[in-house]
Design a protein around this nucleic acid. Structure first.
Lengths: 225, 225
DNA sequence: CCGACCTTGTGACCAAATTCTCAAACTCCC
DNA sequence: GGGAGTTTGAGAATTTGGTCACAAGGTCGG
């Protein structure tokens, strides 16, 4: 048993998947070793950060050489829990839920979508991405029988909190929320959120700042209107 | 002209959309004022953070009373650039791109999808979410004619960097990348990314930690297998 | 108009994350 | 085997973000 109780900073955890992706690519090209600099470039961060991040996992590199791609890939996979596969349920099969159900990137990383659930009886029974949509009432049974640990919420905002509650009482301990609302989960349950329009709003903020700055310069320098 | 060169921390900018959403909700209920505490609850943060965040924007509250919902909403909208509407182009009309094209949450915040673009000739001419898919070759013209400032990339990873380049040379200065790969844009262009499987991987990390901890306890206490 | 009560705004402190820096440790070539 | 060249690992310094605590400034009832 390795010495587990190392504490890995959240910011580092959030970058591990980037390194993972870069390493998978290197492994596919049969590159035996990689430097922190090269890896940094591929992951879009800087080299010092890469090395510091890896130092939290352990000393897996060799000075003067770099990191062994296969070995590091294994260590990161293990750390991220990607050596096993995780049964996932998606609740809310609208446009977004259906797109997620069809998304190939999940299964590639060991996330296996085992059930699609929707409250709308009209949607139940339909097939989406190779699975039949099941009624919300069956959620507890589905989670228990198929050993689901991760739930994805892709419902409208109004239903999200209720669904989160159902997921948690059914036994799900990790929740990914796509609904544009804040939801609460009890301690001991992980929650992450993805909000599409928030990302656009952040872009809008900086975009507007640039536009204003440009406007300011144009006026200041007395350019033509 | 307000005193603009206030520097607003990135972390604060990322939370403004949360406050915005909460305030819209309060405004709909005709609530005239709101305290930092109430707002904190709705946005899922703590009250001190709310007040500190608002203090970067200016002193818009009244001691002993709280914040005027309408006024604060206006200030935040203005700050986020939501008082104007932003023409958006989506490149890559697969499952995800189509879901985004149909997503109602964008238009509700002033993001108007004005074009859908795909490299696949088979997809061009088809209608998705009320728009006809146009060929990638027309991107420069589309961006110029429709004054597009924001581009969304929803292509496969392999095409993302090339599309980013096309968007930027066409004049787009804000890019939201859904493709599971790192892309580079020149300075002066904003880039944000949403990676669906990365979020799951982060959940997987913590999920696995919990499972291991539970396992450790079970073994340590000599529970039944 | 006064005193009890609320709630903001912010300075001071604390924690987390990032960057800098360089000794240590390795390879490779001669 | 020794010296030049690489590259890691990690302590120190810096920057950024978060929390605390409370004075300042407001309301409101009497």
């Amino acid at each position: 048993m390795p010495d587990r109780p190392r504490r890995i900073p959240e910011a580092t955890v959030a970058r591990l998947p980037l390194y993972y992706r870069a390493l998978v690519e290197m492994a596919e090209q049969r590159t035996p070793t990689v430097s922190s600099e090269r890896l940094a470039e591929m992951a879009g961060v800087n080299a010092a950060k890469v090395r510091k991040d890896f130092s939290y996992l352990g000393s897996y590199g060799t000075r003067g050489v770099g990191y062994d791609v296969e070995y590091l890939l294994f260590q990161i996979s293990r750390e991220l829990g990607l050596t096993q596969d995780w049964p996932v349920v998606i609740v809310g099969i609208g446009n977004l839920g259906a797109a997620l159900a069809n998304y190939r990137g999940f299964s590639a990383r060991g996330f296996r979508i085992v059930a699609l659930v929707d409250a709308d009886p009209a949607k139940c029974g339909k097939e989406v991405g190779g699975l039949v949509v099941e009624p919300l009432a069956d959620l507890p049974r589905i989670v228990a029988e198929r050993d689901v640990a991760i739930g994805i919420i892709a419902t409208p905002a109004a239903a999200a909190q209720e669904v989160a509650g159902l997921l948690v009482s059914a036994g799900v301990t990790s929740v990914l929320n796509f609904a544009p609302t804040v939801i609460a989960v009890p301690p001991g349950v992980s929650l992450r959120k993805v909000d599409l329009s928030i990302e656009l709003q952040i872009l809008s903020f900086y975009q507007q700042r640039r536009d204003e700055a440009a406007e300011g310069r144009r006026v200041a320098f007395g350019g033509l209107t």
